[in-house]
Design a protein around this nucleic acid. Structure first.
Lengths: 433, 433
DNA sequence: ACGACGAGGTCAAAGGTCTC
DNA sequence: GGAGACCTTTGACCTCGTCG
């Protein structure tokens, strides 16, 4: 799930379950698939020949062994872990019934014999952390002893229905996170030119073949230096292009009309740009937005970026977006899901009436996924606040966008800086309203 | 709980409750065989001495067994004693809440089915005497969530319970709802003039003495008619005044500096105005915002409210606020709490750095209350969406406010309509930025 | 064959929820 | 605000299939 969890996993495995370590893993043909979470299984497998494992597998749970989850007396090894009857049954029930729990507190409740029922989220979490293996759950009890044959026939395992789709939200978040990483990759590459937004929208998505593109030297970090207008222009265009590629990864986005695609992306592109800029800005204090290549924007107006009527926008980006983001300690997964929820805005200007309900539902999907993602780490109490605070940031974002648009109008009007045609096509609403 | 009781307890335990103690061997037979249960069991209980009963400890309470406390029909063995549902729950509640009762008579009241509620002291005493075991009371478990409601509403997935601070949240919501009603009352009254915002902020809150004020005939509904500029102006000023009175009802608001009070109210007053306008607009279709006195604004630009550059604002108010509000079916309580969360905006322009954290916490308070309020009605799945959709409306609100401010600047610039001095002081940021 | 182990199943009795 | 009917969850104990 996240780094901390993985660390805990490593620790807890050796702490809670040393017997299994020494005694070897269960019969490999049974339920252990190499895909298991724990890496220590892998090392075991490589150390001992199968025969050892079989012999050791029969080993009784030592007298007085405690449940790795709740420290009650263990009744045996269940789902790969020394555990008590209660935790064993609890784990199976949770998996089978596809339940999802949310911690009412902060997601780090104690789990022990006396209070193990107090928080089901944290109890289940602990089950996973100590290594209980959901794949050991047999969903079909009526199987007819095919064990021997199955082992003989092939080493390849057909694992159908291995993952119950109870973690639908988690899957959504995971996928968005993956796409987010692809975007990061594309951000380093030379993005081929297009004639305009329409061509960008209708061409194949570049995110799945980023490695075909050459690295762009301009995006590589060399040193910190004050951003020039060219830097700002380059990053603006770059993010806008990435935004379109990102949008095209959504299945629903491909289904709606080009007109609606345009409406959504025009509504969101600059927010995408802005959000990525501040979220991925390395932390050099609250007064600097730093681009990937080292160019930075300071709070104090610089020579390089002074334009009439366009000054206060960066201060606001720092105060109302960058600093709150840092305070909220958003993970990349949360950030990615948040952007998806923003993108599918049913109130986007010019969005057709037919598309609205569909977009609304899509947004709901990401809102729920975001909520699940946040509360699974923080629990209910803090999660509701974080989710709420994050969503209320939309106000600031919108505000800054409005101001930015105004600035662009001013620029256009006074011609003191020519806006890139692609950016103009993507971001600026026509003057006539 | 006292000496005598302890003695009695000892006795009663050996008399009434030999079964539960000791880990006797289980019944040989197949206990799940429903057909044999009652007859087998019944005969056992009557035939065999107590020590044998322990073998049957897992069996159902015999047919017709009576509650050892009140002689009602027993529903099973609870806390070691055959007892009815009432006495079981009564015993747990008493232990958990650590209540102490005092007998009004002589401490030897009869306890039976009909009068078991007459004396809680004697009922609890009886519970102990017959051997109910306080050690069998467990720690608090995780919340389960709605039971009956879940079936009734949309058959969505797992409904998890809401925060443990439920009651506290409910209180917050209730209080806000009350204030909301007071505002509605004030809205109908003649509000005394003030010299300016500062005077309004520093005077006593009028909401608690609305009945001292005379009714304002201009606010009473007579008939529907197109709003004049005077109507709009009147309602603007009125809502701004109410906003200040409303703000003063918050304890924290009274504590912060006048400067910060000004910052918060300036940031929010027009939103307050706008939100109340559309929320309380009687539903005359999606194309009309109707004031309380019958004046209405149409989507199509009217003669009366045509101002250069100021047209599209009402369309947006309808499309992005009024219609979504109706779609979300906000209750007054939810609406009131939402406004409180908006009001305490830590990113409000000009808010002092000291006040920010406090305001942030205050907002969190209302966010949690809002979430509780919504999910307690809709359950988790739908609640998360509604909460999320509502909070994302802040973007539209902010957008419209920005546009409104722009309009006001235009008005001010072209002097085609004089903005009321009070409104100007409250809403307009200085031109210099 | 047989006993140990750990899958899943069972159900009384815990606790929680909801309507008076 | 408490009582108690009703609902959900828990876990000790059970059976069964599979190994050594």
């Amino acid at each position: 799930m996240n780094g901390t969890l993985a660390d805990q996993l490593q620790n807890s495995l050796s702490t809670y379950n040393p017997i299994r370590n020494g005694g070897g893993v269960r019969d490999e043909g049974h339920y252990m698939n190499g895909a298991s979470v724990s890496s220590h299984n892998g090392s075991m497998d490589s150390k001992f020949p199968p025969s050892y494992k079989r012999m050791a597998q029969r080993r009784k749970v030592p007298e007085g062994e405690l449940c790795a989850v709740c420290s009650d007396l263990a009744t045996g090894y269940h789902y790969g872990v020394a555990s008590c009857n209660g935790c064993k049954t609890f784990f199976r029930r949770t998996i089978v019934s596809e339940q999802t729990f949310i911690c009412q507190y902060n997601g780090n409740c104690d789990v022990n014999k006396n209070i193990r029922c107090a928080c089901r989220h944290c109890r289940f979490n602990k089950c996973l952390i100590v290594g209980m293996d959901a794949k050991a759950i047999q969903n079909d009890r009526d199987r007819i002893g095919p064990t021997k044959k199955a082992k003989m026939s092939s080493g390849s395992d057909d694992e159908q229905a291995v993952t119950p789709h109870r973690l639908q939200d988690q899957e959504i978040v995971d996928q968005l996170t993956q796409i987010e990483n692809l975007c990061a990759e594309l951000r380093r590459r030379i993005i081929p030119d297009v004639t305009g937004v329409t061509q960008a929208l209708t061409s194949n998505c570049m995110l799945y073949e980023t490695t075909d593109l050459d690295l762009d030297g301009n995006t590589q970090f060399k040193e910190l230096y004050p951003a020039s207008m060219n830097d700002i222009r380059m990053w603006n265009i770059r993010e806008m292009r990435i935004c379109i590629e990102w949008g095209k990864t959504f299945e629903i986005y491909q289904r709606i009309s080009l007109f609606d695609q345009f409406a959504l992306v025009r509504n969101f592109a600059f927010a995408f740009n802005l959000l990525n800029r501040v979220f991925y800005s390395p932390d050099h204090g609250p007064d600097k937005i730093v681009f990937q290549n080292g160019a930075f924007i300071m709070r104090q107006p610089q020579q390089q970026v002074q334009l009439s009527g366009c000054r206060p926008i960066y201060t606001r980006q720092m105060d109302e977006i960058m600093i709150p983001f840092r305070r909220l300690q958003l993970s990349i997964a949360e950030f990615a899901t948040f952007k998806a929820a923003l993108f599918f805005n049913p109130d986007a200007l010019d969005l057709s009436a037919q598309a609205k309900p569909e977009v609304y539902e899509e947004r709901n999907k990401y809102l729920c996924a975001l909520f699940t993602c946040i509360t699974s780490k923080l629990g209910m109490a803090a999660g509701v606040q974080k989710y709420g605070s994050l969503l209320m940031m939309t106000a600031s974002i919108q505000n800054i966008l409005a101001q930015n648009e105004e600035n662009m109008q001013v620029m256009e009007l006074f011609k003191n800086w020519e806006v890139d045609p692609f950016v103009k096509e993507l971001c600026m609403k026509p003057m006539i309203r």
